[in-house]
């Protein structure tokens, strides 16, 4: 019998269910990228489990021909934690949105990241509630006018990358639905990461929040408004590679390259730096002052929760041997009542 795995294709990961997102939704692009990357991971299809919460993006598992679990609002990371901890052999991917992950499920998200459970979290950020038809979300910009905030929202948004970094996430990245090659690369990186992987995916909701990211996704502005993070490379951007980011007196600063400054003056990116504070500063590079960073903000190797949990069980069995049920029941101070009614200490 051959031990070689059958070669899987994108088609193997497409379920027979009709995809029911709105035409033009960014979710299609993310689904396509995932269905392209997973077959290339050289893993049997039955090892994949896609877990989601509630919301448009959480329909994701139905469209994947893998094991899947469309759970309840906000709870995908908790259910995925149970799956991964009970079954570390499985590849557990989470599809969630900014409402699902950052609002109702915020607690589970941060704790999953803190524990470094070996799950991949794809957070589709469209900065709006889609399935409930257009209320503002915890990532909507201040002043957002929606059905539930006709006078504009008065609460400040979350910065998802900063939140993930603050929770101690060991892999944090950002990509964009329509940046397909980049998105696929990020998915591949997440797949290779051993602990929790968190990817914020800017995703356009063309019905309730169209063009939310247009400032940086339009062909003519893309190069000026984004900076690609590449390991060991200086933070240089712009169509002509004529702009950069430097660190000066503890602050990030946007600089023009050419006369005064060159690429050598720019911050050289190190995603593997254990201290997350520089990644945190990058997460706060906001428009219009700064280009939006795209790529890996943090990738550090730390043992995953599931591996540690299994490790403790294995260590206990190594140390004490497989538990004996009879012995467990018959432990503590025992006494035995004999047929004649006499009593003795101990087991019979």
């Amino acid at each position: 019998m051959s031990t070689e795995l059958p070669v899987l294709t994108k088609k193997d990961f497409q379920s027979d269910q009709e995809v029911r997102w709105c035409p033009g939704c960014g979710d299609y692009a993310v689904l396509s990228a995932v269905q392209t990357v997973l077959p290339k991971l050289d893993l049997p299809k039955e090892k994949f489990v896609v877990v989601s919460g509630i919301g448009c993006s959480s329909r994701f598992p139905y469209y994947m021909d893998t094991y899947g679990f469309h759970t309840i609002h906000g709870r995908a990371p908790a259910i995925a934690t149970g799956i991964k901890t009970a079954r570390p052999d499985l590849e557990v991917w989470i599809a969630t949105g900014d409402g699902d992950a950052m609002s109702i499920g915020g607690n589970h998200l941060i704790h999953t990241l803190r524990r470094n459970v070996g799950v991949k979290i794809l957070m589709f950020n469209n900065r709006i509630y889609g399935l409930t038809k257009g209320q503002y979300s915890p990532t909507s910009e201040l002043g957002k006018r929606t059905k539930s905030t006709p006078a504009g929202s008065v609460d400040y948004p979350f910065n998802p990358l900063a939140l993930a970094l603050g929770a101690g996430a060991t892999f944090v990245a950002r990509s964009v639905d329509i940046f397909q090659p980049h998105l696929r690369a990020m998915l591949q990186r997440a797949a290779d990461h051993k602990g929790s992987a968190f990817i914020e995916i800017y995703q356009n909701c063309n019905i309730f929040n169209d063009k939310a990211f247009a400032y940086m996704t339009e062909k003519d502005s893309r190069a000026e408004q984004t900076v690609y993070l590449e390991q060991g490379q200086p933070l240089v951007f712009g169509k002509e590679k004529d702009k950069g980011i430097r660190l000066v007196e503890g602050r990030l600063e946007r600089i023009e390259l050419g006369r005064e400054f060159g690429p050598e003056d720019c911050l050289v990116w190190d995603e593997a730096f254990e201290d997350p504070s520089m990644a945190f500063r990058l997460a706060y590079m906001l428009p219009p002052e700064f280009p939006t960073p795209i790529g890996v903000l943090r990738a550090v190797d730390m043992p995953a929760y599931d591996a540690r949990s299994v490790g403790q069980i294995e260590a206990a069995i190594d140390k004490d041997g497989q538990g004996e049920l009879q012995q467990l029941i018959h432990s503590g101070e025992l006494w035995t009542v004999k047929e004649d009614g006499s009593i003795s200490r101990g087991d019979g």
């Binding site: 309840i72 259910i79 995925a80 934690t81 149970g82 799956i83 901890t85 009970a86 589970h108 704790h111």
Partner: peptide, 13 residues
């Protein structure tokens, strides 16, 4: 909530 959800995930597994 996470406690019961994790148990449900483990049951699925």
């Amino acid at each position: 909530i996470a406690a019961v959800c994790a148990a449900i995930g483990a049951s699925f597994g």
